[in-house]
């Protein structure tokens, strides 16, 4: 009786493990086949948004420190504002056009991931939203041009205050505030810490 039970448990265990092994095999095969494509897609998404900011640029390189680590990676500036990384945008003649700053700011529905161009003369080139989960019809209008175009050509020393120099999205003050504060605070941080880098490039 007891032996029978043990035998049954073992059989069941082996059966279940077999199913799991086969499932795991199928998954790992699919994963290895799709992985390069997935990475390509993710890179393409970021690159496309960078290209939309500096259409003339042909190369985007990640800014790294001496030990080849990306600078400002996951740098928390504020409770809800985080820097992700910075790219240099260069054109055919290898001339530095500006920096691309990627970061995120907490909106109404979750983090708003944005990227913007920072020209060498301390103006914002243009802003583009990579990812957001704001309310459709309200905060989701954050991707609309008539809102984002306000940031074009703004000086880094400007106030970036909603209802003063930024007209908010109708009935979505929180989203508008999140983005403009995210840009202001990240750009201030970058300006304070990037001077050495600019010199390095000029030398």
């Amino acid at each position: 009786m007891k032996q029978n039970q043990t035998k049954q448990i073992v059989t069941l265990g082996i059966t279940l493990s077999l199913y799991c092994i086969i499932a795991a095999l199928a998954l790992s095969v699919t994963y290895s086949v799709t992985l390069p494509q997935i990475q390509l897609q993710q890179k393409k998404a970021t690159e496309e948004s960078m290209k939309s900011i500096y259409p003339d640029a042909i190369s985007f390189t990640l800014c790294t420190d001496n030990e080849q680590n990306p600078i400002f990676h996951n740098q928390v500036i504020d409770n809800c504002i985080t820097l992700d990384c910075i790219y240099e945008g260069r054109d055919q003649t290898n001339l530095l056009l500006g920096y691309l700053v990627k970061g995120s700011s907490l909106g109404y529905g979750g983090p708003i991931v944005f990227i913007y161009g920072l020209d060498l003369d301390d103006t914002i080139h243009s802003v583009s939203i990579i990812e957001h989960s704001e309310t459709p019809g309200l905060g989701a209008n954050v991707i609309k041009d008539h809102f984002l175009n306000q940031f074009k050509g703004k000086l880094t020393s400007d106030a970036f205050l909603v209802k003063q120099d930024i007209t908010p999205i109708t009935a979505s003050t929180i989203t508008s505030k999140a983005l403009s504060e995210g840009i202001k605070k990240s750009v201030t941080y970058v300006r304070e810490n990037i001077t050495e880098l600019t010199n390095e490039n000029e030398n």
Binding site: L12, Y19, I38
Partner: peptide, 27 residues
Amino acid sequence: PKSLRIPIFIVIIASFVTILQFLLQAY
């Protein structure tokens, strides 16, 4: 086996869902 059917169903469904997700992410 009858006593194992629910875990096996879940394993099979979950595998197909994960495969689907990889495919969607890639293409």
